[in-house]
Design a protein around this nucleic acid. Structure first.
Length: 773
DNA sequence: CCGGTCTAGTTGACCCAA
DNA sequence: CTTGGGTCAACTAGACCG
């Protein structure tokens, strides 16, 4: 225990290069040099080129050789450029430091500290608050959310050890197929490289001379040639890190890295050996057990998030201690409400009833934080609590900015309320105030008001289906009785407490626990491991949700094309033209929305994110479905329609599309292993596609990433449960690569939508693809 | 062609401030 | 105590020149 501090320092290994790290930088454990490198380069839109094959092994020695791969690695281990201050922020910070220095100077010079001290402290407090709320919070809400995240990471020393051994296939770093770092498409091999690298990372845990040798031997010969003039440089490096410093403390610190470099120099010399290990590296690393370890790590890092959120909840309770800054409070509120509004409600209640009324400046600061406000309005109970507290309301109204916000949002506070009576707050356009269900009215009215302009159909589909869901959930027992097939069992499974309470936490906690116990028990991957209850429930949730897609399309198609089943865009023929097919996809999208709304995690997300995910993910999900319904021999898709003539669509129709859609689709579909046409695999892939964190306009991409990772994890576990170890892993890797392909194909598909004449397209599609603009 | 010099850009270690 | 930014010495690569 007493060695905790030194242990903490020596145990930290840079996730990018493996050098010694001191802690988190830009959201990932990294060394000083990678920190500086990332800070200098992540925001630059420099078009770095890899001089090799874009899969450089980044080590303390090789990290300077390829900026591209180094930067990619930075992103892949979860470093976030959002953490880097913008120029504006830097200027503000500099100004503030200057101000503080200016204030300190007279303090030092002046021999009357008492007089100055008071003024300084007052101003300083004011400055600090304004800095935290205005400069930081209002401009980079996302950033300060992660700041809190980061703070948390320091609180749990135990977790650190786990974190260090994490692979890039983790919560923060699972390759996101849709928008890889710097908007570059991640190629399949790139994705695989990330997996490959991750195995090295898992080795970092036991980084020593031998691992150093291992790594350095992997440097490819091209690089060796490039470094062929380097003996002197190497010597320089060697000299530089030799314990020549007079500072004994420093010597001690540097001794590890010196030895490492020492070894690196030897390795560099040995690198002149002609063998190119690159290909061997692939096969060995993919086959050996470390490959499996790195996957095991992913849920562990996910657990960070679980712990993060639980920490937020804890700190929420501690809020009265006054030890937390307002910014933290906001971020805590944000996170907890987005994660589980119900669970945190009691704590929020305390916050509302105790803290808010006492502190009007706090109210102002909270109101200035749009993110927080958004969250408030997503939490029905909290909103009601706030709006029904006369003291809070009067404080809110007294604040000029808050009242402006009210005005802007169309909120009217009823003046005649007395403290005894409930404050009656409503929206201007709420013509018939519903006293019985005011909170619901408040919520829905506000939502509709907010979103009406942008995505009316989509919003309506989301909120309607949400209400539908509520009704359905109340009638669960009724519904169950009507189900005669396996759905009933599955549904009961889904409704088990762990998944019903909160899908992510319970699933992952359970999964992580079992993951390790199972591995230690089995000692490897030779045995197929059945899904545990939590994993099964997570999968079953998708299966139940999927029911929305399986109902016959008869009615929907009739609504679209009329009783005679003649496609209007193809001169009355029964074969649909491209435009008909496009419009048919509107039906599919409606169903996909229904499906998504049956996934708890999706349902719990804020509306902005729901819309963003659906807009970005619906076509990818459709493509995946089409892979499942594709008839290879006849080159057509099957659709659920009772009439034989209407139950298939010729893929030929894609030839009408501009660009390369038909060829791309054919390539995608033909490289789709028949074994992947497994409903469950498609479902999990669909969920991965749906929960893609970097869709445009996504608000809480971290939450989405967490959810996506849980599906990556589920995919791997499902494959393990069906296929033997190596095959499962191989398939997992291929499927991840397929997700990259999917993204490419999706771009083609979206291109087709964008080329359409909006006047002939279903309104929903116009909205999804922003065709009016 | 070679070696020396200059210069701009990059890197990494250290430090400061919040 | 942690972490992001600033600074500066060291290093590197390319241009230029004799």
């Amino acid at each position: 225990m007493e060695d905790e501090q030194p242990a903490r320092e020596t145990n930290k290994i840079c996730g990018v290069c493996g050098d010694r790290a001191l802690g988190y930088n830009f959201n990932a454990v990294s060394c000083e040099s990678c920190k500086a490198f990332f800070r200098r380069n992540a925001l630059k839109n420099k078009d770095f080129r890899c001089p090799f094959t874009e899969n450089c092994n980044i080590t303390p020695v090789t990290r300077r050789f390829c900026q591209k791969c180094r930067l990619d690695k930075c992103f892949s281990i979860g470093m976030r450029k959002e953490y880097i201050m913008s120029e504006e922020d830097k200027v503000l910070k500099r100004q503030k430091i200057e101000q503080n220095r200016a204030k300190k100077r007279p303090t030092l010079e002046n021999t009357k500290p008492s007089k100055i001290k008071k003024g300084y402290l007052d101003e300083c407090n004011f400055d600090d608050t304004s800095m935290s709320v205005n400069s930081v919070a209002s401009t980079t809400s996302d950033t300060y959310f992660w700041e809190s995240d980061r703070k948390y990471t320091d609180l749990d020393a135990n977790r650190q050890n786990v974190t260090e051994s994490l692979s890039p296939v983790t919560a923060a770093s699972v390759p996101s197929p849709s928008s890889p770092p710097e908007n570059e498409a991640i190629s399949g091999s790139k994705t695989l490289d990330m997996m490959k690298d991750s195995s090295q990372n898992s080795n970092f845990e036991t980084y020593d001379h031998s691992s150093s040798i291992h790594e350095e031997n992997e440097v490819d010969t091209e690089r060796l040639r490039m470094d062929s003039n380097s003996p002197s440089q190497s010597q320089q490096r060697f000299d530089k890190v030799k314990p020549s410093s007079h500072n004994i403390e420093k010597d001690k610190k540097s001794i590890t890295s010196s030895r490492k470099f020492d070894q690196n120099i030897l390795d560099l010399n040995s690198e002149f050996a002609p063998a190119n290990h690159e290909s061997m590296k692939y096969s060995s690393e993919f086959d050996n057990a470390s490959c499996c370890n790195k996957f095991d790590c992913s849920p562990v890092q996910n657990s960070q998030y679980i712990e993060h959120t639980s920490h937020y909840r804890k700190t929420n309770v501690d809020m009265d201690s006054g030890m937390h800054t307002n910014v933290q409070i906001c971020s805590q509120e944000t996170v907890s409400s987005q994660k589980q509004s119900r669970e945190t409600c009691s704590k929020e209640d305390n916050f509302v009833s105790n803290k808010l009324p006492q502190d009007s400046t706090l109210i102002t600061k909270l109101v200035n934080n749009s993110n927080f406000i958004t969250k408030i309005f997503q939490n029905e109970e909290l909103l009601l609590k706030i709006m029904s507290d006369p003291v809070v309301i009067s404080k809110l109204e007294a604040d000029p900015q808050t009242s402006h916000f009210f005005k802007r949002s169309g909120i009217v506070v009823d003046k005649e309320t007395s403290p005894e009576k409930e404050t009656n707050t409503h929206f201007k356009d709420d013509a018939k105030p519903n006293h019985n269900n005011s909170s619901h009215t408040l919520k829905t009215t506000f939502k509709v008001k907010q979103k009406q302009i942008e995505n009316p159909i989509l919003t309506d589909l989301i909120t309607n289906s949400s209400q539908e869901e509520c009704i359905r959930q109340r009638d669960d027992s009724e519904w169950n009785r009507n189900l005669s097939d396996v759905t009933r069992d599955v549904l009961q499974d889904v409704q088990r407490v762990p998944i019903a309470a909160n899908s992510i936490e319970s699933i992952l906690c359970e999964a992580i626990k079992l993951e390790f116990s199972a591995y230690s028990a089995l000692g490897g991957m030779e045995t197929r491991r059945v899904l545990n209850d939590a994993e099964r429930a997570k999968l079953n949730e998708l299966i139940v949700a999927n029911k929305a897609l399986l109902a016959p399309l008869d009615e929907d198609i009739t609504n679209l094309i009329g009783e005679d089943c003649k496609f209007k865009n193809n001169f009355g023929r029964s074969d649909p033209a491209l435009l008909d097919v496009v419009n048919l996809t509107a039906i599919a999208i409606r169903r996909l929305i229904k499906m998504a709304k049956k996934i708890n995690a999706f349902k719990n997300m804020c509306q902005e994110d729901q819309i963003a995910l659906l807009k970005g993910g619906c076509t990818e999900m459709m493509i995946l479905r089409s892979a499942l319904n594709y008839d290879v021999e006849k080159d057509m898709w099957w659709i659920p329609h009772s009439q034989e003539s209407m139950s298939n669509i010729k893929v030929d129709v894609l030839k009408e599309a501009k660009g390369n859609l038909y060829a791309e689709h054919t390539r995608f579909i033909r490289s789709f292993d028949p074994r992947w046409r497994d409903e469950n695999i498609i479902l999990i892939l669909s969920a991965i596609a749906l929960f893609t964190p970097d869709r445009p306009k996504v608000v809480h991409n971290d939450v989405i990433k967490l959810e996506q990772n849980s599906y990556y994890y589920l995919l791997r576990r499902y494959l393990e449960s069906v296929y033997p170890g190596c095959e499962a892993k191989s398939m997992f890797l291929k499927l991840i690569q397929k997700i990259s392909d999917l993204h490419r194909l999706n771009n083609e598909v979206v291109g087709v939508y964008l080329n359409l004449n909006p006047s002939r397209v279903e309104p929903l599609l116009i909205e999804i693809f922003d065709l009016k603009h």
